[in-house]
Design a protein around this nucleic acid. Structure first.
Lengths: 223, 223
DNA sequence: CGACGACCATTGCGACAGGATTACGGCGTG
DNA sequence: CACGCCGTAATCCTGTCGCAATGGTCGTCG
């Protein structure tokens, strides 16, 4: 689960990034429209949070550009004032939701969840596998009746694998899903997370196992 | 499945070659336009990845040369900057796609797949044979509902045979499809792969078998 | 028809790459 | 300050590969 945050107010951006990160959602952040366009070309996000006022233009111009590249990623637009006029303009241009500043983090989460749950979004609700249930939107995991608390990174690994259950997920995909572009990884951190995650899943008797496809990636299966 | 990579930045070239090789795609690599022309004459590739900036000229001049030799192999052009002007120039000259550096490997794979899927491309999507389905673009194999994980070389053998299902594939063709020009083979490594592949196909009950035509090559059939 | 030679199938071996595991230290949090 | 998480790196372990030896199969030619 990864979102793109386009916001030039540093304090706000950091607050949003910190909150989302804590919930196990990776955040790529930029203050510039130009960079946002580049990032969106390079990878796919589960959602985009977009400020209107940006140093190099009105954020809203980003949306037609996205849509014309047939990117269907949901977009939530942030704006200083919540004027109905602006709201209509945003939605007309293809934004999926609209949020006036200031707002509560909880409200942003709620709208992100709502927007990613939409049929056009990629994420499906609640994946069941073995004794385990993964909710990729709420980012939580149940084993039987008990909630399984996982460290952030391990949770991200598990959710990413669960979303493609039974299919091989490329190493590189896992890495880009779990780390943002400024956290470059220079070791086998991913392997370490997988290893620790395996142990936890075994201890919890989750009824699933993580297989490795040598030289390619990992895959999650019932066992 | 084999592509020609024309790129003079050693690090980048190595990264691309490594990633593609991992996916079971053979890579011939050269840094010079001159060599590229020679290689393209000698054998056919499924796709060509071409840098513009090369020590002995603008890579893009390669494309008209190719086309005038009525080679329809899809070409993806790499360039340092993603300027629309350059993009148009490239596409006008017959490039099939265009990718600005830096880029994610994932993106290159995606574009390669897309470009090879095109009607002009040689590769057809999904070959069904017995209980087995081979996707030559994604380089994966399903038997029934299960994905069959094969070692890299065996996978290459199988895909090559599947693409000419029912027809005899010359030994020499298999060898050039599976090994690049710097990996020369001096033994019966190919036979060994066929042997191990047969065992795996039997174990998985794939409903196919690999026959040998003495002194000529191999062929894949339903049984 | 039988024997020889060419070709193929199979399998064990050693080298090697890549993954798995774990200890360690830094860091943030409560 | 204690605890847990995370990235790193060292070490161990496993799968894959090329290779070669062995034994089998087929065609050919005397």
């Amino acid at each position: 689960m990864k979102i793109l945050l386009v916001e030039d107010e540093t304090r706000l951006a950091e607050a949003i990034a910190a909150s989302l990160t804590k919930k196990g959602i990776a955040v790529d952040h930029t203050a510039l429209l130009g960079d946002a366009i580049e990032l969106a070309q390079q990878q796919t996000y589960d959602a985009i949070v977009l400020d209107r006022r940006l140093p190099d233009g009105d954020g809203i111009t980003f949306i037609p550009w996205l849509r014309s590249s047939s990117v269907v990623t949901p977009v939530i637009v942030l704006t200083a004032r919540n004027e109905p006029k602006e709201r209509v303009a945003g939605l007309d241009l293809g934004a999926d939701d609209y949020l006036g500043k200031p707002f509560l983090m909880e409200e942003l989460f709620a709208r992100l969840r709502a927007v990613m749950r939409r049929p056009s979004a990629l994420a499906e609700p609640s994946i069941v596998l073995g004794r385990m249930t993964v909710d990729p939107i709420r980012m939580d995991v149940m084993v039987g009746e008990l909630q399984l608390d996982l460290p952030r990174r391990e949770l991200m690994v598990l959710v990413t694998l669960a979303k493609r259950k039974g299919k091989t997920v490329l190493r590189s995909v896992l890495e880009t899903e779990i780390y943002n572009y400024e956290e470059t990884i220079q070791s086998n951190a991913l392997d370490a997370h997988v290893s620790r995650l395996r142990k936890r899943l075994a201890d919890a008797d989750a009824g699933v196992s993580i297989h490795n496809i040598r030289g390619v990636g990992y895959l999650l299966k019932e066992h």
